[in-house]
Design a binder for these strands. Structure first.
Lengths: 186, 186
DNA sequence: TTGACTATGTTAACTTAGTCAACATTAATG
DNA sequence: CATTAATGTTGACTAAGTTAACATAGTCAA
């Protein structure tokens, strides 16, 4: 009877992912994760140096998920919509990835790589879409789109307000492609 | 000799603001704030119910600051630039305001009001700028601009990367108005 | 097989941080 | 002046990240 677990590291990450995905990173703590894995609280430290490492791993998986899914997309607007939907489908994972995680990405090369790949996607897609533009203009545009997409996710999630009406947000959410077309290439 | 402090509540908020502004909200803790104010750790609880109240107050002041400053601005692009500069000048306060603060704003009406006013500003300025557009289009555009501005602050702050070159970011930062013009009304 | 080294777990305890309860003092009010 | 409300203090509790010391299991060379 296993004093050692099957593949504890993987298990811990999955448990943490599930909690984070369902309830936010705030609700992920060592004692809870350990209990679900049926190990002692500190078993974690045999596989990670600190809690931040776990966070980084969840983030990395988030990017991985985005980057995989994007391979099926062909239109440019569909591309942006893909990112936005990720933010809506995995809100708490998204928070982890794009919130102000005072995490130093350079400490986690695998994470950094996935993160860069995500932005790369936008840039490449844009190049195909507007092949005649000057290189710099394309990059600037990509930055703008990236910015818009992320800002929009925040707004869509923040919901109603006396100023930006929820009917607008609903319309946008249901017409992501059209919205992106409207605002990106007006 | 004052067993009671001059205006402790105000003092605590200012100390917290300073720490947060310089080092991020993560580094604001009751014991540190109390020590700087030369009172006991728990004196805080005579003026606030919990730490979140302090966070809400800092956020409210952040919005207040943005909203005041914006009265001097006249051009639309200048307007967006004003928001962006706030994000760059007060990065940690900005994080507090627009990061994923799982704070329920509806619990803090004063905060909510300032927050709404900030978005309102964009909408009003836009209406002046494109008076002929349909109401709904204007609102959608406002959402898009709001989103872009916030996303951009994030990018400007995240700095270099192998994909979005820092030279682009520098250019944008030094030419905010032009960038906004380019991307908003292309 | 054995013995030693390494990986992986466990227990106990330390630390930091938010918060509360009980008590003390000051200020204000009738 | 006596009472009461407001504001401070001390001490303690709790949650959560983390470390140290110890235990066991697995691996691999002699």
């Amino acid at each position: 009877m296993g004093y050692h677990k099957e593949n504890l590291k993987e298990q811990l990450v999955e448990i943490a992912w599930d909690i984070c995905n369902a309830e936010s990173w705030q609700n992920v703590n060592m004692r809870k994760v350990a209990k679900k894995a049926k190990v002692s609280t500190t078993a974690f430290y045999r596989h990670f140096k600190k809690k931040d490492d776990l966070k980084a791993e969840l983030m990395r998986r988030g990017y991985e998920l985005i980057n995989e899914g994007r391979k099926d997309v062909d239109t440019f607007a569909g591309y942006g919509a893909h990112y936005i939907r990720f933010g809506l489908d995995y809100p708490f994972i998204y928070d982890l990835m794009f919130g102000n995680t005072d995490l130093d990405m350079s400490l986690y090369p695998d994470l950094e790589e996935q993160s860069n790949a995500a932005f790369d996607g936008v840039l490449e897609a844009l190049k195909d879409f507007m092949p005649d533009s000057a290189e710099k203009d394309t990059r600037i545009k990509a930055i703008n789109i990236w910015a818009s997409v992320h800002g929009l996710v925040g707004l869509l999630r923040s919901g109603d307000s006396h100023v930006y009406k929820s009917e607008d947000l609903k319309w946008i959410e249901n017409n992501l492609e059209e919205y992106l077309q409207m605002t990106t290439f007006s």
